[in-house]
């Protein structure tokens, strides 16, 4: 097979999606459901109205920020499973700021952004310290701390930060209006949040392509020993990478509170930290593909609750559609490599 021809490349590019649709259709039919109806509901749930489109747009923000951060840690060869925790930390510090300070929007919003950045960064540093000085693999350090983060959120919601009316799963009291990110018209989307996400992905793109730091991280990811010998302080840069990723993810968590829920809820990350892992893998670790992939993920995310309403299916079909694409993407990539090697 000639892997270089445009048609082959197109076919291989579409294959992961086709395989995903085929397998999920098979599962749905085995369960006695109509797959076309399910897909129609999914797409309709995401795009049937401008309000829905705005929902998709805003739900892209935290995922895009987390993915942008994860591009940095991926460059350094780190499996940053701790992004969830980093988002939680950003959200918690933001909530604390909102609860502690009374100020007009012009002061409050920058403060919440800073709080998000700082909270996530600190959480990232903690993982970095465990990894570099404690020699605990970042997967386990990050994952363990994710659970700690969620327990901490629950504790705060059901303890010190419970609303006057009594604690519930719906979270803290709504934030005052001064802590809401400015919205576009009457939609639920915030232009400032979208702007932040776009800026973040651009910054990461430039960092990884054209800065010495980006190159340093790549060197660490590819061969930490050689990088160290060339004078790179590998420990410090591993911690920095996790810190930078944490900051972006923390901002994502912060925006979950200030731009989406307008309060702190127990599952504040919405699983975006884990999804970011999938996003970055599916974008082939390249920043320029991240927005498109995030769009797909968010559309599925926003569309899938309709499955529960209309078809009494579980909305986790959305997760299946997201994860399966990435799995098939990796497998098709491998197939392409295998065929390519045989050709040579």
């Amino acid at each position: 097979m000639n892997t270089r021809s445009a048609w082959t490349r197109l076919a291989l590019g579409v294959a992961p999606f086709a395989l995903t649709l085929a397998t999920t259709a098979a599962i749905l039919m085995a369960m006695g459901e109509n797959p076309l109806e399910a897909y129609a509901n999914l797409i309709g749930g995401g795009f049937e109205s401008w309000a829905k489109v705005a929902d998709v747009a805003i739900s892209m923000v935290p995922l895009m920020l987390a993915s942008a951060g994860m591009l940095i840690t991926f460059a350094a060869g780190l499996w940053n499973i701790g992004v969830e925790g980093q988002m939680v930390a950003g959200a918690l510090l933001t909530t604390w700021v909102v609860q502690a300070i009374e100020a007009p929007s012009a002061v409050m919003l920058p403060l919440t952004i800073l709080a998000g950045l700082a909270g996530g960064a600190l959480w990232g540093v903690l993982i970095g310290l465990l990894r570099t000085y404690g020699r605990v693999n970042e997967i386990f350090a990050g994952l363990g701390l994710n659970y700690v983060g969620f327990a901490l959120t629950n504790y705060l919601i059901f303890g010190p930060w419970k609303p006057p009316g009594g604690a519930t799963m719906s979270g803290t009291e709504p934030f005052p209006r001064s802590a809401w990110m400015p919205l576009i018209g009457s939609t639920r989307a915030s232009w400032l949040a979208l702007l932040l996400a776009v800026v973040a992905i651009l910054i990461v793109y430039v960092i990884l392509r054209d800065t010495r730091w980006g190159l340093t991280l790549k060197a660490i990811g590819l061969n930490a020993t050689a990088a160290y010998r060339m004078g790179v302080d590998t420990r410090r840069h591993v911690i920095f990478a996790l810190m930078a990723c944490g900051a972006l993810a923390g901002l994502g968590g912060s925006l979950q509170t200030t731009a989406i829920y307008h309060r702190l809820i127990p599952q504040i990350t919405g699983g975006n930290g884990y999804l970011a892992q999938l996003v970055v893998l599916l974008s082939g670790l390249r920043a320029q593909w991240v927005p498109l992939v995030v769009l797909y993920f968010s559309a599925v995310q926003v569309g899938s609750p309709r499955l529960e309403l209309r078809m009494l299916l579980d909305s986790s079909l959305g997760g299946v559609l997201q994860g399966a694409v990435v799995l098939f993407f990796l497998l098709v990539n491998g197939f392409r490599q295998r065929v390519g090697l045989r050709d040579r």
Partner: peptide
């Protein structure tokens, strides 16, 4: 072994995917 993919990447994707499959099915 046969498709040259990173074990960690595939493992993590399967972790997330199978959790969703279990919920859905």
């Amino acid at each position: 072994i046969y498709l040259y993919q990173d074990q960690v990447a595939v493992g993590l994707v399967l972790t997330l995917l199978m959790a969703d499959v279990s919920s859905f099915v």
